[in-house]
């Protein structure tokens, strides 16, 4: 596609999306909605292309090539795995038939629990242990720098109290009413302050990102107009 055509299409589509700012005027809202549906159609098409080119095609090529093997079981095992995956894919199509939907559910169960297992291992080894270690460990030589040590202590206290904020255990008092301890309530308030601060910073960072993109789009519109 020629560069001018790319710029013209970009210009028109950007204006179509920005027409949203003008509000719900019948003829103008058609432009915004059309842009959104164009986006949905293109995204579906690109997803299909990427899924075919990045996943299905390489696997198809691999099972035709006898010199490759996905596992230590050899090439013939690859054909069985691919065949089983195709069968599972066909079973997914049985969902509308109520009497056979348990077959689809079994396939979905396999997909969900394998995904869950990967997520559990990833959460344990990729987030939980490294983050706990990084929060609790003291860097070498930090004892000589008082302010750095205080910051480190604050990070530790903040992490622990913010985690405690999600702790909802209450005890029954003499009248049988639920009651939290005062100390726990104090920790929860400190934790909430850290969480609100974090959410505020994330919110501000998102505003900055969107502002940067908006500036880029507006400068593109002016450049094209010039």
């Amino acid at each position: 596609m020629a560069e001018n055509t790319i710029a013209l299409v970009s210009f028109l589509l950007t204006l179509m999306v920005f027409s949203y700012i003008l509000g719900d005027i019948p003829l103008v809202s058609v432009l915004y909605r059309s842009a959104v549906f164009i986006f949905a159609g293109m995204t579906a098409a690109f997803t299909l292309v990427v899924t075919y080119e990045g996943l299905i095609l390489p696997y198809l090529q691999d099972i035709q090539d006898r010199s490759t093997s996905w596992t230590t079981l050899g090439h013939s095992a690859d054909i069985y795995i691919f065949g089983a995956a195709l069968l599972f894919g066909l079973l997914l199509l049985l969902k509308p038939f109520h009497a056979l939907s348990w077959l689809t559910n079994s396939v979905l169960a396999v997909v969900i629990v394998v995904g869950a297992s990967v997520a559990v291992v990833g959460a344990l080894s990729g987030t939980l242990f490294p983050l706990l270690q990084a929060t609790a460990a003291l860097p070498a030589g930090i004892t000589q720098d008082f302010s750095a040590m205080m910051d480190r202590l604050l990070v530790f206290v903040g992490t622990m109290t913010a985690l405690f904020y999600f702790h909802y255990q209450l005890r029954a008092n003499r009248d049988g009413l639920a009651q939290g301890s005062r100390l726990g309530q104090g920790f929860r308030h400190i934790g909430k302050a850290f969480i609100v601060t974090t959410l505020g910073a994330i919110y501000a960072s998102t505003i900055l990102t969107c502002l940067t993109i908006l500036t880029e789009r507006i400068s593109f519109l002016f450049q094209f107009g010039a």
């Binding site: 950007t14 986006f39 293109m42 990102t209 880029e216 789009r217």
Partner: peptide, 12 residues
């Protein structure tokens, strides 16, 4: 020409 401008306009 199409996907990136719509995405960035929506984000803005």
């Amino acid at each position: 020409a199409a996907q990136v401008p719509i995405e960035s306009a929506l984000a803005s």
